[in-house]
Design a protein around this nucleic acid. Structure first.
Lengths: 117, 117
DNA sequence: CAGTTGGTTGAATGGTTGTTCAACTATTGA
DNA sequence: TCAATAGTTGAACAACCATTCAACCAACTG
């Protein structure tokens, strides 16, 4: 009973646990990666990003396309912008959003591949 | 003002919206894909799956490794099982979990690649 | 300048979700 | 057969989150 940590059971296979612990990156990286995938874990955002992979679009167009308010779209775009998943160019008062890089489309594609077996 | 749908604005670029709508898969697929990515959108589940990509582990080991209760691990494993992301073999009363297929590791890797630029 | 429109922001809210606790099942060993 | 242990399950709860509403900013138009 060398280790108890903060859970209700002992380690059964201590060697495996220690080996895995040694091979694994620090917690912060998991936080970053899970924050990244969180963006893909919402149907609206998925549709939004997939739409942008087809053509750049403005907030109003996205709102109509998604069937939600401009405000909701803007909130989502802000989250996506903070994680560098989308970028935009401004033309007058219209903001044309598009995907930030090819990584985003790659993640979308691997997701669709998986569910289509 | 041909289209109003359920939002607070008109379509500015009707052609683009229509073209995108035509190219896009049905809603159900987005629900499936976002449910898939939702599994990768939590730090504990990410660590869990990453650990399983290194070595098969039982529920107790995972609980100690993650620093949460067996119960929490079991709940997470159930979700992952329902989406065919993990599988397990039983040896006596011990259940050894592992990743269901290479797709899971591929998704994890593309995530880490992205955050490491 | 005044009015209109595209977009953003913050507060509020209803729904989702990760975790724990307690109770339960099933398998092993004495 | 009884006790111990690995794992599962459901209820409960706190934290989180996607959306809306209302108010605001910014840029074009008349």
């Amino acid at each position: 009973m060398e280790e108890r940590a903060c859970c209700d059971c002992d380690v059964i296979h201590e060697k495996i646990v220690k080996a895995v612990k040694k091979k694994v990156p620090p917690m912060e990286e998991y936080l970053l990666v899970s924050d990244l995938f969180k963006m893909f874990g919402d149907p609206s955002r998925m549709r939004l990003m997939h739409a942008l992979s087809i053509h750049e679009m403005c907030v109003c167009d996205l709102a109509v396309f998604l069937g939600i308010t401009k405000s909701a779209v803007s909130h989502q775009l802000k989250s996506l912008r903070l994680l560098n998943l989308v970028k935009y160019r401004k033309e007058g008062q219209v903001a044309f959003y598009s995907l930030a890089d090819d990584h985003v489309e790659a993640i979308i594609n691997i997701g669709f591949e998986h569910i289509r077996e």
